[in-house]
Amino acid sequence: MITVEKQDGAHIITMDDGKVNALNKDKLDALVAALADCAGDFGPAVIRGRKGIFSAGFDLKGFAAGPETATAQLQAGKDAILAILRHPAPVVTVAEGHAYPMGAFLMLAADRAIGTEGEFVTGMNESAIGMALPIYPMILGAARLNSTGRKAVATAQLFSPQQAREVGYFDDIAAPEDVEPLLAKVLSELQKVNPAAFNANKSAMNAQLIADIEASPLPEF
Rank of each mutant, 00 (worst) to 15 (best):
M1Q: 10
E5K: 15
G9V: 06
A10E: 07
I12G: 00
I13N: 02
T14I: 10
D17Q: 08
G18P: 06
L23M: 14
K27T: 14
L31G: 03
A34I: 09
L35Y: 05
A36L: 06
G43K: 04
R48Y: 00
R48W: 08
R50N: 08
I53F: 12
F54Q: 10
S55Y: 07
A72E: 11
Q73D: 12
L74H: 09
L74Q: 10
L74I: 15
D79C: 11
I81E: 04
I81T: 13
L82Q: 08
V94Y: 03
A95D: 11
A95V: 11
E96S: 15
A99C: 11
A99N: 08
Y100S: 14
G103R: 07
F105P: 00
F105G: 15
L106D: 07
M107V: 02
R112M: 12
A113P: 06
G115A: 10
G115L: 12
G118D: 10
E119F: 14
G123T: 04
M131P: 07
L133A: 13
P134D: 01
A142P: 00
A143V: 05
G149K: 02
A154R: 13
F159V: 03
G168C: 06
F170Y: 15
D171G: 14
E177D: 14
A184P: 06
L187H: 02
E189I: 09
N194Y: 06
A197W: 10
N199L: 12
K202L: 00
K202F: 01
A204F: 08
N206L: 03
Q208S: 13
A211H: 03
P219A: 03
P219G: 07
